[in-house]
Design a protein around this nucleic acid. Structure first.
Lengths: 201, 201
DNA sequence: TAAAAGTCTTAACCTACATCAATGAAAGGG
DNA sequence: CCCTTTCATTGATGTAGGTTAAGACTTTTA
């Protein structure tokens, strides 16, 4: 994507939430760096410090965790106009427990920690925007957690399809299984069951 | 607890994180209202709007969700010096999906939304304190979620004991089971297994 | 202080999902 | 274009934790 188009995407995103002066916009454009990611490239990996907050201007990312049995668990997907990063690692400069990886050729606008301080000092309204983003993020994760402990895999899958109907076009099925907290084999079987039931109707 | 002692507990909490003038402290003391809760009393229930952020000065609370099969799932416990509330409901004035209930006779310092705006305007440093609290909250929940999908109930139980060794003295066992995402019967069985194994050594 | 409500344990049985293994199809890289 | 890797599917079998039911013990309430 052409760089100016990327920045415009971000400016549009901000302007839906807060009004910005021309100077604000120029500052934003000067601080966020567009970076391309090939499929499977990482923004950072488990054990590294997350040095950038990323805004997805193109493509798809997954944030995942590798457990001590070497199994991967998808915590989030991020599509266009979403954010990627690890807040704890970014703000506290401590190693992240997460991996952020491109699922296809993608593009991010990156902001480092020093520049984020500059930005917040110059445009305090943005600090509030990010507070709201984090709050919504927390709320979504709470719902996800409660869904995981209160519903079975099929209910979680159907809820996901409802909340994000195009998910099956966007990411491979074994990544969806990982997001749902089950194995690819289980998801495959489950879909077969659902299809059989629907044919029965 | 005597009211001044409650307020002092809160001031101590804040002063560990930020320095406050005497005027700041007086404002805090005037805005936070001490309220007593009997065992089983609610701060709010599912469907209600969360009108207060609460700071626990005495006792214990649980935040839980009741699913469509009428099963309860504990999302958090809150002990002394912790916060209770539902951020999404508090800030967006929308009905909460959660319940916050005292597990014993307890006491909170409550701040309503209008007063929180007053407070943040007068003492901007506190807004940052709360941003950090929310960030830490999010990080803790992420770890909890990943633990739930990557470890079995016994591993989660042992991790909880390590992280919070006095938990078994503080809350009844069936609440711990609910926090772990299993039934009380399963936890009972599991503890027996663990005890048997330890005796074998 | 009697009745009721809440809590913990045990046991037999069941089910959702994991595990292991094999196959074919599709995608990607040299 | 072939060769390797990735991905989806299916079947057989295993198991952690759910379900149901019952009994004992404790705490609360009237």
């Amino acid at each position: 994507m052409e760089n100016q188009a990327s920045i415009n995407k971000l400016l549009e995103y901000f302007e839906k939430r807060v009004s910005l002066s021309e100077a604000d916009k120029a500052l934003i454009a000067s601080l966020y760096k567009p970076v391309k990611f090939k499929k499977k490239d990482y923004l950072f990996q488990q054990g590294e410090i997350c040095k950038y907050q990323g805004f997805v201007t193109k493509g798809t990312f997954r944030t995942y965790y590798t457990d001590n049995k070497a199994l991967e668990h998808v915590l989030y997907f991020a599509f266009e106009d979403w954010w990627v990063g690890d807040i704890a690692s970014f703000y506290d400069h401590e190693p992240s427990g997460l991996n952020v990886q491109a699922l296809q050729d993608s593009e991010l606008l990156l902001l480092n920690h020093a520049d984020s301080e500059k930005l917040f000092n110059a445009v305090p309204a943005l600090e509030k925007v990010f507070r709201v983003i984090i709050q919504r993020h927390l709320t979504v994760l709470q719902k996800r957690f409660l869904m995981t402990v209160s519903a079975n895999a099929e209910e979680r899958f159907l809820e996901l399809l409802e909340r994000c109907p195009s998910i099956e076009q966007l990411v491979p099925q074994h990544q969806i299984a990982s997001y749902l907290g089950i194995l690819p084999e289980s998801l495959s079987r489950m879909k077969k069951q659902i299809a059989k039931r629907e044919k029965g109707l």
